[in-house]
């Protein structure tokens, strides 16, 4: 292998990959350094590191109270959607992976195909539907929509994982007199932790980052999520760019931490499973 020799070809590859890395990192660098500048410094120094790190923007982000409210709303919305969807999808995935009924494959393929349906298509009928139900401008309404949009992928992922659990384990539990629900909660779900971690990461990222549904269905100021709030904030306080950047960075770090933490757990779960099995 040419792994360690620095031939002209390898050198060229490094140059190309460095360039790619710089382009990938530059906007992130810009976001981070700007958040530590004062509004005044940003005017004359955009590119370089801040002369002195200022936390002014961060204290300003929290001072108004709006940001904290958006943050709490995003948390509430994300966690309720992710938990509800995991519960509903586990039940459905169990039926698809382990029970026999007619037209099973057709139904499953149909649900999986829904993954690609653009949400914007459903927005207008859903708006009228939620108005009729009195759920417009409520968290409940948006949770229902998020759960619906996340279900196809969740059912797909869990079904394929549940199918990979050896039938013999389930059969043994069945003969020991476990009910179907006990099999699901005592055996299948504990054995599927890696799948649930993956599912949680994907779904949390999606719900936390969602903008369109939140813009349309949560117009009340007290219900705004981080994405909606920050987008509006950016256009209104265009002049104070460091404050916006600080808000964006806090928003991003919150879910990035979950991703980093979850990844480690994910690998642990995978290796533990393979050692046992």
């Amino acid at each position: 292998m040419t792994r360690n020799k620095l031939t002209p070809g390898v050198f060229l590859k490094h140059v190309v990959l460095m360039f790619m890395s710089l382009s990938a990192l530059f906007p992130i660098y810009f976001m981070v350094i700007t958040s530590f500048k004062t509004k005044e410094e940003y005017v004359y120094n955009k590119f370089n590191l801040p002369h002195s790190f200022s936390f002014e923007s961060y204290s300003q982000v929290f001072s108004g109270g709006n940001f904290i409210k958006w943050f709490a709303n995003s948390m509430l919305l994300t966690f309720s959607s992710v938990i509800v969807v995991a519960a509903i999808a586990s039940l459905a995935a169990y039926a698809f992976a382990r029970l026999r009924f007619r037209n099973k494959d057709i139904l499953l393929n149909f649900i999986i195909a829904l993954m690609v349906v653009p949400p914007v298509v459903m927005v207008i009928p859903l708006f009228n539907f939620l108005v009729d139900m009195g759920l417009i401008n409520t968290m409940y309404g948006v949770v229902i929509i998020y759960v619906g949009l996340l279900l196809p992928f969740s059912i797909f992922l869990l079904t394929s994982f549940f199918k990979s659990i050896p039938t013999s384990i389930i059969e043994a539990a069945y003969l020991d007199g476990c009910s179907t629900l006990q099999i699901l909660f005592r055996i299948i779900i504990p054995l599927s932790m890696p799948a649930f971690v993956t599912l949680t990461i994907v779904n949390v990222l999606w719900a936390w980052n969602e903008l369109m549904i939140a813009v349309i269905f949560l117009q009340d100021d007290s219900l705004k999520t981080l994405m909606v709030g920050l987008t509006a904030f950016q256009s209104r306080y265009n002049l104070n760019i460091p404050v916006t950047m600080a808000g964006l960075l806090i928003t991003t770090m919150t879910v990035l931490v979950l991703y980093i933490f979850g990844q480690r757990y994910f690998i642990k779960g995978m290796t533990a499973g393979s050692v046992k099995g």
């Binding site: 519960a87 509903i88 999808a89 039940l91 459905a92 169990y94 039926a95 029970l99 026999r100 009924f101 007619r102 099973k104 139904l107 649900i111 829904l114 349906v117 298509v121 459903m122 207008i124 009928p125 859903l126 009228n128 539907f129 229902i144 929509i145 759960v147 619906g148 949009l149 279900l151 196809p152 059912i155 179907t180």
Partner: peptide, 30 residues
Amino acid sequence: DRYQALLFLAPAVLVIVSVFLYPVVKLVQY
């Protein structure tokens, strides 16, 4: 199996009907 499948699938089907199927029918109508 068939009865259990019905029970286990009911919540998912209910949500999918209200978030996907009903809206698409309404969309065509609108």
